[in-house]
Amino acid sequence: MNEVLLSNQIIVFLLSESTLFILLLVAFVVSLKVLVKWDFESFMPFQFALERQAYLVSTIILFVFVMKFILVVYFIFSIDALSLLLPGAMCGAGVIKANVYGSYLLVLKLSILFLLTLWFYIHYYDMRTKNHQWFKHKSWLFSLIFVFIVLELGLDFSYFSNIDTHLPVSCCSALFGQLEGANPLPFGLSVSLLLVLFYLLYILVILSLKSGYTLLYILTNILFVYIAYYAVVYFFGTYVYQLPTHKCPFCMLQAEYAYVGYLLWASLFMGTYIGLSDAISTLWLGKTDPKSKNIVVWLLSLFVLLCTAYVAVYYLRNGVLL
């Protein structure tokens, strides 16, 4: 039997994912039925029964929503713990790249979290209307999420059962570090340009968010996440590790760096999720929540400040930059 599948965390993880899937399957079947037969204007007992069943669907999704967030953190933690078992792996990066499924799985998990946040927003507005105005919107969205989750479950199992513990994997320094002179940054950027872009985009995100240019905001925020990922891996990360050659998005999730990676990535992604969900619901449903804008500003600023603080503290302590 595959040694990876005996790892306690992996068993718990797969079990949890499967349990959630069974619940979602129930929700999906009910939701489809409700979606097809839904007619809010009708006063038949059948419609009332449907409305009651809609509560089951939303309760299940809310529960899954909370659990998925915990499970992503747990997933990353287990991946990190697996690095002990794989020859050559120093952190999660190597384990994720242990087979082809890993990186897709991670991206898929992050997108599902985003969609769930969006669903949560629509649900929130929907519950506050008297006639469940956006019921169909949220049901269709859930159907989409469900398709993704089916994919995710499949990937979960194929990823973990296909990790070969005898095959050496690349360490993060091989994956992100020296690429024999090739520039790993997108658009042929240099590190200084990357940083300029990083801060500019941050300012642009905040400005467009505050001034209400929703479409511009969505675009800049997506770009910001993209640039921020590279900025953290190729610049800020080196200050977290205090080593100019150490370029890795995963090592900072380990205990040696006080698990700062969780805070860093969580603030970036949560900020983006909330911001984008609010922006999309503005465009789609015409509803905005002023509170979430403030939260987004806070979270993204926390992210930028934390990144900058590592550089500043290093500079103040040592008098030089890496």
Binding site: N8, Q9, V12, F13, L15, S16, T19, L20, I22, L23, V26, Y55, L56, T59, I60, F63, M67, I70, L71, Y74, F77, S78, A81
Partner: peptide, 23 residues
């Protein structure tokens, strides 16, 4: 890791089982 594992393996099936009767 240990505490979350325990929580997940217990609380998640527990709540999952109770959800439908609760609804």
């Amino acid at each position: 890791s240990v505490l979350t594992s325990i929580f997940l393996i217990y609380a998640l099936p527990f709540i999952a089982a109770v959800l439908i009767p609760v609804w």
